[in-house]
Structures are given as structure tokens and as C-alpha cells.
Design a binder for these strands. Structure first.
Lengths: 355, 355
DNA sequence: ATGAAAGCGCTAACAG
DNA sequence: CTGTTAGCGCTTTCAT
């Protein structure tokens, strides 16, 4: 036999004792059975209105709150969603990009609105598959992953294992999992077209095209070049990662080495900031010498030096979209990838032609 | 009787069926009892080494993972900490200040390192006491609250109710709860002293002194003024809140109305950015006309226009400190408030006298 | 070294 | 309308 009860029989233990109140305590005090308390607290019609009232009042006055662990176990139910932000193990960079943090905030809102809890955690970007742990262990009913990183394959495999999963990112060919993201091709297209409209012809592209989102943005960039009768030049493409710690040196070196571009498309606003810094170190100015377009339109993009012209991503809507996609999946709906519209926000780093 | 089992008796259900693997399945396949599986998986010495090996292998190959809900219920244990970020209900502003988000990231790291999970949520800044819900419902073993906001009183009351609680913020007189924060008095002092050393004499202060942290920073500011034989001028103090949505108009108006200050201490980097914008709108420049010091040293502070001279807060260390304080409390240690050192980071918005 | 059985706090089917 | 009872998946005492 197991003996875990702390005190022998007293409802709430001795004064100093801090036992958590349970239904059985309420039941005893109300002079009814636990089932009745359970029903009353769940607003069941089965229980006498007056009793229900009395029990509810008692529970409130005693500051009772239900043990969700027990309830969930019994009901085989769970209202927790895991939100997982990949981090770069090599550089030990953490959750830090303002854009990703904004997305997390947006998801937090969407989950709260729907009565779900959010379990936030990190995972090594090389082992995205480990994110399934939260589901496997029953801690969460599903996983929202922020970004695809380099492991489209792992994500497909997770989806194949029937893990309830939604990923913020771009839609790739042969994709088994559900993704939600901005229209990356369109974003790249808008950015490059704008720079071309300013008369720029040698447009650099900064971003790691191994990442699906960047790869798609690059397609838009290439398409815009083609529209203007131009070819992409490999020498003007720089595969800089999103982690500032790693990117800083790479970008700086690039700006020192090549002075033959007059504009640049950066795949995040943070990269844009690093690029501006690199250009300045190389004695060039933005937007006079080099026009620059960022990506994300992070909250601070308007306050940088200079304020960033950037592709606006629908952060506020992203949370709801991701959460809905996940809940839909759990309801058994076959929800495909969703692509949300983006637009170009004009500011000083690549001002309008008129300006 | 309750009939919840999905399929009659099959170990893993039919092909299409997606039942979660349990100990009983492993037990059946290994030809032992559940108790043995439990012991084996927990590395108990009680079970034969060879059996233990076999069970462990089987579990791994089947990709079994334990149901934590059940385990926690049985063990009366929980490794989840609630991290709560207050939001301003009036303005519907969400988790958004980069500094708070950085702190959240830092806590995420610290919790992960110690094997804890993080439940992230928001709470109305007027009802901080609602944060106790996560503890009361057994979802978390304790609460880390980001900021004290205006409700020192509610926090004291929560602590009095024995809620395991740690708050990021400043140490106030008569404080019952455990706080962890930067040295705010010192921060305000360093900021104002620096401006004085630049020869500035009319130094504005922007931040809502109803908030404990701001109140403490203001003390440092006043002390620095006193050292220089100056009195604080109420007309140069602006009670702007941290939420950009609300602060923008207030700051702008202030900058239009008063042109009689030559320096300003802002209580966050975001407020600093808004102030710079307001000053520009009023035809004044930073740092030429007005020298400005921010607060937080958020990741992007170095990339603003101009780069911000600001009080650096120990974000990276903050997470570990907060988590340790909470865990210490749970171990029964009487941990008092902790104040961490801050320093002034010199950049262009208030450059060194030499520059 | 292993198994049977009880019970963590809760819900719901069943029987009054 | 209410109480009794079984059981969610796990750990552990007790008995072998």
C-alpha cells in the first residue's frame, strides 16, 4: 500500500502545513460526494442548481483550483502547445532574432485567446526532429516550430510519423508537413524590383539559400532581375546565416572585398543592420552609395539608421494562422501549407525614386 | 464502468490507429510486468541488469516515451516553471519590448539547462495576482514574473500567500517577495553623471516613476544632480510608459512643448528611440542639440540612429539568477532580493567628452 | 529479482 | 439528482 497523504485526516492540514486543496476537501465541507463537486464545478445540469451554487461558492471562497494534471490524465486531454525555436548549437546563439521573438509573441496571443497554454523551448537546429519530444511525452498536443532551417528532410519525416506539426516557413516542393509563412517569392521580387526601379543594376543578395525561405526569396530576386534582362551574379550573393554572431564577420568581409554593387537585398532586418555597418566600415553610405532593402519589418526597423525599407511580414496574423493550422490538423482536417501576403515598406535605406 | 481503451487488446492498435505507446505495451512485448519496466526505465538496481538492458533497448527501438502527466501525478512532482509577461490591457500592447523578450530568452536557456520546462504566458498588468493561477492549478511549481509594474502591493500579497515567486525588477522597501534585477539606482546615477560630465545642466528624465524600477533610476538621477549642485525640475520629467503605442504621442508632445533641455535620460532603449524621433520632429538633433542616454542595452542598441549610449543590463546572467532564486525558494531557502551590477555603454547618442 | 495491487486527483458510466 | 465505482498511466510498497 502506498501512503502519501500528508496529514491523517484534517481537511487542510495543520496551520503550517501547505497542502493543496482538492475536490475531496470541498466535498467534505459541502457535505456531498466528490462526483457532485466535480459535476458542480463543471456546470453540469445534472446537479441541483442550489447545490451547484453552494459548491461553486465554497470552492471560490477557499480559492480552490483544479489539478489539471489529474484532469488531463483522466480526460486524455491536454490544452498545451509546444512552441519550439531552433538555435544554432555551433555558435551557441539563442532565441534572439527580434522577428522570431515577435512571432512567438503573436503565437502566445493566439493560444491564450483560444484557451491553450504555451510551452516554449529551444532545439538544436541540426536536430529539429527532437522537437517531437514534447508531443511524445504527452506534454503537448502538438508542435509549432519557428523556421525550417536546413532540415526540410527531418520535418518531412516528423510529419510522416504523424506528429501534429506546423512550421513557420516557406512552402517547398514535396513537402509533407504543414507550413505557414509569408510569400517569400513575392517578397524577394518586390525587394529586387524596387531596387531596379531606382536604377540600380548590380544588386547583391545576402542570405543563406540553403534555408527554404531564403531560397524562395532568391527565386523572386532572380525573377525580378530577369524581368530587367539581368542575370544573377554568383559573386554578388553572400550566404550569410541569420545569427548575428556568425554573420557579422562574413558580412564585413564581403563589404570590404566587393565594392562593385550598388544595392543589396538582405534576408532579415538584422542582416540589413549588419550590412549597413559593414558598408560604413568600408567607407560606403546607405542609401547614397548603396540602396538596401531588409526583410521582416521588425518593430524597430523604423528606428534604425537609416530607417529600413523592408519587406513587411504579417507577424500579427501569423500567430493565429499557425495556431489554427495546428488545431485544424488535430481536428483531422487535411490542411495544406498557407502562404500569407507581404508588402514592401518604404523607408530611407532605399527611398522611393521620387525622394 | 469506464470504457476508454480504443482497441480491444492489440498492442499498438491497427495500422491506421494512432495510440500512444505505454509501459504496458513494452511490458507485454518484453514478457515482464509493468513494475519491472518502470524500474528498468528508471535504472533501478533492483532489476536484473540483463532484463534492464533488454527493456531499455525495446523501449528505445519502439520510440517509447513516458507519459509525464501520469508520472507527475503519481510522484506529486512537476518540472515546469511559469514565466509571465504582463501586458497593458488598456492599450492591448503585447509582449513586445525587446528587452523583456531577451530576458525571456535568457530564462528559457537557464531552465533548459536545469531540465525544467517553461510555460510562457501573459497577464494583465493590472492583475498581476492572476499569475498565481499557474501555480494554483498545479501546472507550474512556481512563477517568474517579468517586471513589477504598478502593483508592488499585489506582489507582496502573492508572496504572503506563499506562492513560489520571483520577480524581475527593483528592490523596494517593505518588499516581501523575491526580486532579481539590475542596480537601478546605480544605472540612473551613471546615466545622469555622464551627461553632467559632458557639461549638460538641463537633463530631462523620461520614464514612469510609478514603476519601481523607474522610481529607483530616478533616485540615481536625482542623486547625480545633487552631486552637481542641481535640483530636479518637475517640468523636465515625463511619465511616459514603456508601451510604444502609448508613449509615442506623449513623447512627441513633450519634445514639441519643451525645448529647454540639453540632455535626456530615457528609461528604456525603445523610449530612447521614440525620443530621438520626437526631437527630430521638433527640429533638434541627437547628440548635437540633445545628448541622450538609453536603458537596457538591447541587442539592437548599437545599430540605431545614432547608436545608443545606454545603461547595460545583465540579460545573459538574468535568466540563471531568476531561475536559481526560484529553485532556491522551493528548496526552502530564504532568498532575499538580488541586485546585479550595471554599467554605462558609451556610443554616439551621448559620446564621451573626448569625442 | 519480480509481480500484484494500491493510489496520485480527477471524471463519467452506472445504478439507484 | 446523487453516490459508488472504475480507471487515466505511472511508481512503489509489500509479498513472494
Amino acid at each position: 500500500m502506498v501512503k502519501t497523504k500528508r496529514s491523517s485526516d484534517s481537511p487542510a492540514g495543520s496551520a503550517s502545513e501547505q497542502r493543496r486543496l482538492q475536490m475531496v476537501d470541498i466535498a467534505r465541507l459541502a457535505g456531498v460526494s466528490v462526483s457532485t463537486v466535480s459535476r458542480a464545478l463543471n456546470g453540469s445540469e445534472l446537479v441541483n442548481a442550489e447545490t451547484r451554487q453552494r459548491v461553486a461558492e465554497l470552492a471560490r471562497s477557499l480559492n480552490y483550483s483544479i489539478n489539471f494534471g489529474a484532469r488531463n490524465l483522466r480526460l486524455q486531454e491536454n490544452k498545451t502547445v509546444a512552441v519550439v525555436v531552433p538555435f544554432d548549437a555551433a555558435s551557441r546563439q539563442h532565441i534572439s532574432d527580434p522577428f522570431f521573438l515577435s512571432i512567438v509573441g503573436s503565437i502566445a496571443d493566439a493560444l491564450t485567446d483560444r484557451g491553450y497554454d504555451m510551452l516554449l523551448s529551444r532545439v538544436d537546429a541540426e536536430r529539429l526532429d527532437l522537437a517531437s519530444h514534447w508531443f511524445d511525452s504527452g506534454k503537448a498536443i502538438g508542435v509549432i516550430l519557428i523556421g525550417q532551417w536546413r532540415h526540410h528532410d527531418q520535418l518531412n519525416e516528423m510529419a510522416a510519423r504523424k506528429l501534429p506539426l506546423v512550421v513557420w516557413g516557406g512552402e517547398m516542393p514535396q513537402q509533407l508537413y504543414c507550413s505557414v509563412g509569408g510569400d517569400n517569392v513575392q517578397g524577394g521580387l518586390l525587394a529586387a524590383r524596387h531596387l531596379l526601379s531606382l536604377g540600380k543594376r548590380r544588386i547583391a543578395f545576402i542570405g543563406d539559400a540553403h534555408l527554404p525561405e531564403v531560397w524562395l526569396r532568391r527565386q523572386g530576386y532572380v525573377q525580378a532581375l530577369a524581368e530587367a534582362g539581368l542575370q544573377p551574379e554568383p559573386a554578388l550573393e553572400l550566404a550569410a546565416p541569420f545569427e548575428p554572431g556568425v554573420a557579422t564577420a562574413i558580412v564585413r568581409e564581403f563589404c570590404q572585398a566587393r565594392r562593385d554593387f550598388d544595392a543589396v537585398v538582405c534576408c532579415s532586418d538584422v542582416l540589413a543592420l549588419l550590412t549597413i555597418q559593414g558598408l560604413r566600415a568600408a567607407g560606403r553610405s546607405v542609401p547614397e552609395d548603396v540602396a538596401l532593402v531588409g526583410y521582416d519589418d521588425m518593430p524597430l526597423a523604423a528606428y534604425c539608421d537609416p530607417p529600413l525599407t523592408t519587406v513587411h511580414q504579417p507577424v500579427a496574423e501569423a500567430g493565429a494562422e499557425l495556431v489554427e493550422a495546428l488545431l485544424g490538423q488535430l481536428r483531422g482536417e487535411r490542411s495544406g501549407p498557407r502562404t500569407m501576403p507581404v508588402y514592401l515598406k518604404l523607408r530611407q535605406s532605399a527611398p522611393d525614386a521620387a525622394a
